[in-house]
Amino acid sequence: MPRQSLKPLLARGKCLVAPGVFDLISTHMLNQHGAEATYMTGFGVVASALGLPDAGLATYTEMLDRARRIAEFSKAPVIADADTGYGGLLNVRHTVRGYEAAGIAAIQLEDQEFPKKCGHTPGRRVIPLADMVRKIEVAADSRSSADFLIIARTDARTSLGLDEALRRAEAFAKAGADILFVESPESEAEMETIGRHFHQPLLANMVEGGRTPVLPRARLAELGFQVAIYPAAGFLATAAVLDRMYAHLTTTGSSLGAPVPVFDFKALTEIMGFPEVHAFERRWAETA
């Protein structure tokens, strides 16, 4: 059972925003701003933990370890990317049980062929619809609590068109998915079509520089989307700052005159929990 449930947030009737986190510093930083939900991004986790592209190279064990740690520290319920479920039906059952035990609030499963790819990159192919329906049925049957939500994603829009993506999402809903995720619609008009087509909760993937237009929260709600994830915003911003800072350091040989803001070191130590460490040492240290 998840440590926190998304159900009360979805019941409010407005679009729930879930910024993406990719490691534990980003999780701690997001906690400072009262986020309603957290999204564990597959692209960001694979890049930060393995230094590799999001192309089916991360294992279930590696992703579960990061999911467990993020859920442990996140103050908001966590939506977690679980790719294709890391194998066949037995693997899907194992993945669902593992993510639920880790404290995740909602698991995202997609219908891509293995090895999968990031949803806003070319060359993605999907498995037969019947195979993905069975995966969703197994996922719904494998959870121990209905508070642990199943997000069913289809990547069919890019290769097979919007009509096929809608048909697949309909089948996923009948199979037991709680939230539907039609990946990478390519216009606001397509997003409006998706919103009109379903009465079930819908998820919008807002990727800066991706295939789908990034829209304001209010507009997403008008279009019928109950969840908006921003998987890339954090790591794109981080990469931009690192790029400028490291360029400055290697060029000048010093951080003096840095072209970007630098977060206060003392504030970061407080966010990371050093005051508790110091309090422990004051109470239990063996030496002065």
Rank of each mutant, 00 (worst) to 15 (best):
F114E: 03
L242F: 14
T158P: 00
G253F: 05
E281M: 13
A240Q: 11
P2C: 13
L129H: 00
L256G: 08
R68V: 02
D147A: 14
K174H: 10
F280H: 12
V78T: 12
T41H: 05
A177Y: 07
L129A: 13
T238W: 04
L57M: 14
A228Y: 05
R282Q: 14
A18D: 07
A218I: 07
V126L: 00
R134H: 10
L220G: 09
F73K: 12
G98V: 06
F43T: 02
M206Q: 15
G257T: 06
T251Q: 15
A101L: 08
L223N: 07
S5C: 09
D264E: 10
I150F: 10
L256Q: 13
P115A: 12
K174I: 10
L242C: 12
A67G: 06
R93G: 09
A106L: 05
T95A: 12
F265V: 13
N205Q: 09
A204Y: 15
V182H: 05
G273Y: 04
V46M: 10
N91Q: 12
A233L: 10
H28I: 01
M40T: 01
F235W: 11
F235N: 02
G257L: 03
D111N: 10
R244A: 14
R217Y: 10
T38M: 11
G20H: 02
T121L: 15
M132H: 14
F43Q: 04
F274W: 14
S142C: 04
R167F: 06
A169R: 10
T59A: 05
Q112K: 10
K117P: 00
M245W: 09
E188L: 08
A218K: 13
L149P: 06
E110M: 06
G34K: 07
A71Q: 08
S74H: 09
L52Q: 15
V227R: 13
F114H: 03
R69K: 14
I271V: 15
N31M: 10
T251K: 15
F198C: 03
E62P: 09
R196Y: 00
R282T: 11
P231H: 03
R219F: 04
G119N: 06
A175E: 06
L202E: 05
T38Q: 05
T252F: 12
K116T: 09
M132D: 09
A169G: 11
V241L: 13
A279F: 04
A189G: 04
A177E: 07
G51E: 00
A177D: 07
V78R: 01
L242P: 00
A49Q: 15
E190W: 02
D243P: 00
V45H: 02
R196I: 00
